[in-house]
């Protein structure tokens, strides 16, 4: 698979702060790539650089191997959602999409099509200024889909969405990725992408921290953990420690075990006839993995703030 969105040694400074620091990433088609990092990590700046809205101090940002500014009819190549408030308040949703369509020679009828796609047909002629944040996000996504582009770059599309909207967005993104499109989605909340993204690019203070499949990231941070409940906690712990596992008491009759798969724990206890009332396995959540990864890079706790520009 060839990367269709990539950066090489990308660097962007604002004054003395380095917002994006020698960042090299590659985003591939056919899957959802999450772009995560704490606020101020440089996600928005990276996306702006990819879209030619900001110019890099060093390195390059490429779309289909070319700078965004060199694309012909760019909306048919990349669909972008940047800021959900970016509409003229008095213009209707339909008029907004129409001027956008015109700029790239997209037929006006496509505006109504994407409005239907995002479920805004009934409010197509209403002022966008009266829309809720969730509706604005849908309108923004409609704008991104306008040119039926093979690449989607979405900055924090989940902000303001209600649970139903989140569900809709997940399904939409999965469908788009399944169609072979490249879906690049940023979020500062890892949990939101846990069930959605296939691959993750994690950045902190403008630097790349991880570029891995979601499953691998979780595994890299924490192995499987088994929790058991038994009235004979002491005996169980002695037994498990004896085979090389690391049991930790986590309550009067509870023990947490690391370093041994669940079925081995059950077998061992059964062989000594230690009563087992409950056994469950738990995995580190993506959130935990993310916290461990970004702890050192968190801009809030250490060093100068690598400003992800707040774009009012």
């Amino acid at each position: 698979m060839e990367a269709v969105v990539e950066t090489r040694g990308l660097t962007k400074r604002y004054g003395r702060t380095v917002a994006v620091d020698d960042l090299s990433i590659a985003v591939r088609p056919g899957r959802i790539t999450g772009f995560v990092g704490p606020n101020g990590a440089g996600k928005t700046t990276t996306m702006h650089l990819l879209l030619g809205l900001a110019s890099a101090d060093a390195g390059e940002a490429l779309v289909q191997g070319r700078p965004y500014r060199a694309l012909e009819r760019p909306l048919t190549v990349v669909g972008a959602l940047l800021d959900a408030r970016a509409f003229h308040p008095s213009r209707s949703a339909r008029s907004h999409l129409r001027w956008l369509a015109r700029s790239n020679g997209i037929p006006g009828g496509r505006a109504d099509e994407v409005l239907r796609l995002v479920g805004l047909s009934t409010v197509a002629r209403k002022r966008a200024g009266a829309f809720s944040l969730g509706m604005r996000q849908r309108l923004g996504i409609a704008g991104a889909l306008l040119g039926d582009p093979p690449i989607l770059i979405l900055d924090e599309p989940t902000i303001g969405l209600d649970p139903e909207g989140m569900q809709w967005l997940r399904e939409t993104l999965r469908r788009l990725a399944a169609e072979g499109r490249t879906v690049f989605v940023s979020s500062h909340q890892m949990g939101e992408l846990e069930d959605t993204a296939d691959h993750l690019i994690v950045i902190g203070r403008g630097r790349l921290l991880a570029d891995v499949p979601v499953s691998e990231l979780i595994a890299s941070v924490s192995g499987e953990r088994v929790e058991i409940r038994t009235p004979e906690a002491h005996a169980a712990m002695r037994l498990l420690a004896g085979v090389g596992a690391t049991p930790v008491s986590s309550g009067r009759d509870r023990v947490a075990v690391e370093g041994l798969p669940a079925h081995r724990v059950a077998e061992l206890l059964a062989s000594r006839q230690i009563r087992l009332d409950e056994l469950r396995t738990s995995r580190a959540t993506l959130e935990e993995a993310y916290f461990r990864l970004t702890r050192d890079a968190a801009t809030h706790s250490a060093g100068p703030v690598a400003a992800e520009r707040s774009l009012a």
């Binding site: 030619g52 965004y68 940047l82 800021d83 408030r85 308040p89 700029s103 774009l311």
Partner: peptide
């Protein structure tokens, strides 16, 4: 100025890069 105020200028310049 309205485009700068709302941030719509970015949408404009994404659609028409020049």
């Amino acid at each position: 100025t309205g485009e700068f105020g709302t941030g719509m200028i970015r949408t404009t310049l994404i659609a028409t890069q020049q």
